[in-house]
């Protein structure tokens, strides 16, 4: 895609909450267009840069659902600092695979894993360093306001490229029928 570089590089933060990083892998699938992308944007907090907390940004791309207190903190930090927040992939949009645990009581799940399975000690870990699990796995839009949603498990590299370039050039992002998918 032929694009005029913007006056000032936009800042992009990305994060994976309770996801598999598959959406980030999909972002890498834009291949050589990555070189074009880094001409247009600068990455702040992201697994790509390994920066752990983010400053003021323009766009946040977030994959994964919200399943524990740390996810809430990360999501809120990104919401606070980013002008535009995009839920990327099935988990971020609907809860996805992690939300399969929503049929069970979280207390029972923890006890089963840490107390009843063979080889476990009979105690649920209580280190204050550990994030606590929420009663259910939530999609992003139940915790913070979300500006855009890109469904897909994962969305294709082409879909992410189209979405990002639309956003960067100030257009309403649109996906055509082929790249808009839910699986």
């Amino acid at each position: 895609m032929n694009m005029r570089p913007p006056m000032k590089k936009l800042k992009v933060a990305t994060a994976s909450l309770s996801g598999c990083l598959g959406c980030h892998m999909s972002l890498l699938d834009i291949d050589e267009r990555l070189l074009e992308l880094v001409k247009l944007v600068e990455f702040d907090r992201s697994p790509i840069t390994d920066i752990k907390s983010c400053g003021p940004c323009d766009i946040a791309l977030i994959e994964g659902a919200v399943c524990n207190s740390e996810n809430v903190h990360v999501l809120r930090e990104l919401r606070r600092n980013c002008k535009m927040l995009v839920a990327v992939g099935a988990c971020a949009v609907t809860g996805g695979l992690p939300a399969q645990r929503n049929r069970f009581d979280v207390g029972e799940i923890l006890e089963r894993c840490y107390c009843e399975m063979p080889g476990t000690q009979s105690k649920v870990p209580d280190d204050p360093e550990l994030p606590l699990l929420l009663d259910k796995v939530y999609p992003l839009n139940e915790i913070v306001r979300v500006d855009y949603f890109i469904p897909g498990c994962p969305p294709s590299g082409d879909a992410l490229w189209k979405y990002l370039t639309d956003l960067i050039s100030g257009r309403m992002p649109r996906l055509d029928y082929q790249s808009f998918r839910f699986d």
């Binding site: 207190s69 809430v72 009581d105 979280v106 207390g107 923890l110 006890e111 649920v124 870990p125 209580d126 204050p128 360093e129 550990l130 994030p131 606590l132 699990l133 929420l134 009663d135 259910k136 139940e142 915790i143 913070v144 306001r145």
Partner: peptide, 28 residues
């Protein structure tokens, strides 16, 4: 601007209970 439709701190209550925690990090 927005707020969740449920009590986030209460959503941690069950995990607090089974882990036996009530420290500052165990709340939202």
């Amino acid at each position: 601007d927005f707020e969740p439709g449920f009590d986030l701190d209460a959503a941690l209550a069950r995990a607090r209970e089974v882990a036996g925690r009530d420290d500052a990090n165990a709340h939202l």
